[in-house]
């Protein structure tokens, strides 16, 4: 736990470093250090049989880069993908998100949108229920995603802060996996953006955790950081055994809480 926090709280330090030392020579491949901070000396096997990472070779918009971590094995009680770490090596806070999944997810495939600050390797590391680590990576060409100005007007962003939307993409069939997209309205300020009026750095203010439940069952927990895009979007799966309610609890770095729930049934 401690090393992970270190990676995340390193962000302000790096912000200062970037503000003061823009253009300084880039260090060597950061992945070995990141890997050690996150996973110690545990071996990470080639994860090509467990997950695939879909990311554009060249991002069209560095502030909204779609990424999909595709699970290549089903979530069963016997063996499932427990967590997925998504790491954008060259970003100021490299750990973009940790997704905690369960057999109730049905599928561990997760799709989200991230900011990419410079040409970088992106790593996805899955931990299966047997405690093994499986890694895959992609190289993404993009730049400026963390300092890109907010897409929305600041007043408008604050006015709809915390609003959520759920879209289900598959019909409701009891016992079968359903796919849903969760959208959370949040400016997800990185701390690397400039305030439009004062010309000061906008302090970081971002979605830190997302908890998705179906009834009482935990489906998905996301620990997130500044690399998720403005208005975070997470597409995930869950298995409704019967009609029920999907509920989401969000907490941001300013300790605001947002909750929302949607009925799931034949009509959804």
């Amino acid at each position: 736990m401690l090393p992970r926090r270190r990676l995340i709280t390193a962000a302000p330090v790096l912000v200062a470093a970037m503000a003061g030392l823009a253009g300084a020579a880039r260090a060597a491949d950061p992945w070995p250090d990141i890997k050690e901070a996150l996973f110690g000396h545990r071996p990470i096997a080639d994860g090509g049989a467990v997950i695939a990472l879909d990311a554009p070779e060249r991002a069209l918009d560095a502030a909204v880069v779609p990424m999909t971590i595709r699970a290549l094995l089903p979530q069963t009680e016997a063996r499932w993908i427990k967590t997925v770490h998504l790491v954008i090596d060259e970003n100021p806070a490299p750990l973009a998100a940790v997704f905690h999944l369960s057999p109730a997810s049905g599928s561990a495939t997760i799709e989200t949108r991230v900011r990419v600050n410079s040409y970088t390797h992106v790593h996805a590391v899955a931990e299966t229920s047997d405690g093994r680590l499986h890694g895959v990576s992609r190289f993404v060409k993009a730049a400026g995603g963390c300092s890109a100005p907010a897409l929305k007007d600041a007043d408008e962003a604050m006015a709809r802060l915390g609003r959520m939307k759920l879209r289900t993409h598959t019909p409701f069939t009891p016992g079968e996996a359903m796919t849903a997209q969760l959208l959370i309205s949040h400016p997800n300020y990185t701390g690397l953006q400039i305030d439009q009026l004062s010309r000061n750095w906008i302090p970081p203010d971002y979605v830190r955790s997302i908890l998705v439940r179906y009834g009482e069952r935990e489906i998905l927990k996301v620990e997130a950081d500044i690399s998720l895009s403005e208005d975070p979007s997470i597409t995930f799966s869950f298995v409704p055994e019967a009609e029920g309610r999907l509920s989401v609890a969000v907490e941001d770095s300013s300790e605001r809480h947002f909750e929302e729930a949607w009925p799931i049934g034949p009509g959804s």
Binding site: G144, I194, R199
Partner: peptide
């Protein structure tokens, strides 16, 4: 809104 547009996006 031009002043804030110039201030926020101009440097980029």
């Amino acid at each position: 809104r031009l002043p804030r547009e110039v201030a926020s996006k101009g440097p980029l």
